[in-house]
Simulated scan of single mutants.
Amino acid sequence: MRLRDHALSIAFAAAFVVTLAGQSVAGLLAYNEEQTAHGAPGTDWFGFVTSSDFVVDVAENWQSEYLQFFLFILATVWLVQRGSPESKKPGDEGLGSDEEQRVGAHARANSPAWARADGWRRWCYSNSLILTMGAVFVASWGIQALAGTTVYNADQALHGQPPVSVGEYLVSADFWNRTLQNWQSELLAVGSMVAFSIFLRQRGSAESKPVGAPHHVSAVESE
């Protein structure tokens, strides 16, 4: 395997690890400062990264990111944006024919095995990307709910208030404040990318049309 062939995923994986580690250190310092302010004992790094305080912050970011891609992948099946390289060209909405998708009898020799299969296996593989994104979103959101309940109840205890159940936390203002502030930023980012890419260019990027392509055509139409 040539590393150069996988440089994009490797670079982002490395950046993810670095930023997650940085978050854990900065979060630990902030957590211990807050504990000191309340006259409570601090913790060490391992204690912090295994705590609900750290987990809830990580999970709420992950769930919003995977929701963003889940919605975007689903939306681009049926919706188009003329001129954006993030969209199919108008008229190509929908799932496409078996011939276009190279499945079943139209699969090629180098097509994945499940693209040649029938029934549930082809359906699963045909929707495997959105199924995976959706599963990670649901799992992350569930973890956020559980960890968030623990953090919320710890804060309740500090103020002499009674604890709440997971169900009660799911309908609380704290949960939805955490959730919606992440969702709105992700949706803004995706919408902006779709719109900006109609008129703006980045030479050499797979996310941009060729610099000289007309504004009104997609990347597919400009080839």
Rank of each mutant, 00 (worst) to 15 (best):
A105N: 11
S172P: 03
A13S: 14
A189G: 07
A26Q: 12
G212I: 03
L20P: 08
P41T: 10
E34C: 09
Q144E: 13
V136F: 13
A189D: 11
S64Y: 11
F199R: 02
D5Q: 13
A117Q: 10
E33S: 15
G160P: 09
I143E: 08
H216Q: 13
V58M: 06
S185P: 02
G96P: 02
S185H: 12
A117W: 01
W45F: 15
L200C: 06
L131F: 15
A173T: 14
S111A: 10
T36M: 08
R178K: 14
T43F: 00
V151D: 00
Q156E: 06
L28E: 03
N153E: 06
W78L: 14
S140Y: 00
A189P: 05
A37P: 09
P41N: 14
V55I: 15
E186S: 15
R102K: 15
S218M: 00
Q181T: 15
A105C: 06
T36Q: 14
T149Q: 04
R122A: 05
T43W: 01
A206H: 04
W114D: 05
A139N: 07
A139H: 07
F69G: 05
H106G: 01
E86C: 10
L131Y: 12
H6E: 02
F70I: 02
N153K: 04
S87Y: 02
Q63D: 09
S185G: 10
F70W: 06
A135F: 13
G96Y: 03
N61H: 14
H215T: 10
V56P: 00
W183V: 15
